[in-house]
């Protein structure tokens, strides 16, 4: 088994789609297909200069990283507070608690680095994704795989070398998380000889499609109070 069935991980299967793009349709796969036909077309594709990447500042990278880490940290924290993690066997519980503690540490440090440029945390709605150990584990695998792809994609775009070094430190830890999560899920911890990077915009689109990030409900109003007085 190379990976869990991602279809039922999240609403609209957004993370699943993203991860399947990573592990199901890779550049290597493209090359293999080309070997059996359409080589000329492939060569033409590869020969085209890549579109110039949109300029992105280091602060923007960190802000997106913070939001993504907040997504993960809240996912693990909520699962622990709800008792989902407590219902898991000891080895799985240790895995989930460790990852939660790491993600919270990542949130803390990125917020500190951004300082006043850090944006407030959005609201999250994980639906059923962290309600049961099985759903939680499958979603965690997809999230960690996606994080590795995200960091692989944005780290080379960062201007500051010290920041690049710091993000590499996070990337390697997230890769360990992904492998550990896959092992817990009964999936191949290292299904491919390489991890494919993902553009920040693609990760953003995948996260958007999960609907995990939601607008905070506005619980205030201006209606005349109809209360008993």
């Amino acid at each position: 088994m190379t990976g869990p069935a991602f279809r039922d991980i999240d609403r609209d299967d957004a993370l699943g789609e993203a991860v399947e793009r990573l592990y199901g349709c890779t550049r290597a796969g493209l090359l293999r297909r080309a070997a059996f036909g359409g080589a000329a077309a492939l060569l033409a594709t590869l020969a085209r200069p890549a579109a110039a990447p949109a300029a992105i500042t280091d602060v923007e990278v960190l802000r997106f990283g913070l939001r993504f880490e907040q997504l993960q940290a809240t996912f693990y924290t909520q699962a622990e507070e709800l008792g989902t993690i407590g219902a898991m066997p000891p080895a799985e519980r240790r895995w989930a608690q460790t990852l939660g503690a790491h993600e919270r540490a990542h949130v803390k440090i990125i917020k500190e680095v951004l300082g006043p440029k850090a944006e407030p945390a959005p609201a999250f709605d994980f639906g059923e994704a962290n309600e049961t150990p099985a759903a939680f584990t499958r979603t965690a695998v997809a999230m960690e795989d996606l994080t590795v792809a995200l960091l692989g994609g944005v780290t080379p775009r960062v201007q500051d070398r010290g920041l690049t070094a710091a993000l590499l430190g996070l990337l390697t830890v997230e890769a360990r998380h992904a492998a550990w999560a896959r092992h817990i899920a009964g999936a191949d911890p290292a299904p491919r000889p390489e991890d494919e990077p993902m553009a920040l915009a693609d990760v953003q689109a995948a996260v958007d499609r999960t609907h995990f990030v939601v607008e905070r409900p506005r619980m205030g109003g201006r209606a005349a109070p109809p209360f008993t007085g």
Binding site: A105, I110, L163
Partner: peptide, 26 residues
């Protein structure tokens, strides 16, 4: 020498005590 990272996360952050936490949803 290796490039010095711009930041290094501190230790893992344990879960805050949840004794006084109440939950709600719309």
């Amino acid at each position: 020498a290796p490039v010095t990272p711009a930041f290094t996360p501190g230790p893992p952050v344990a879960l805050a005590a949840g004794r006084h936490v109440s939950r709600w949803a719309v």
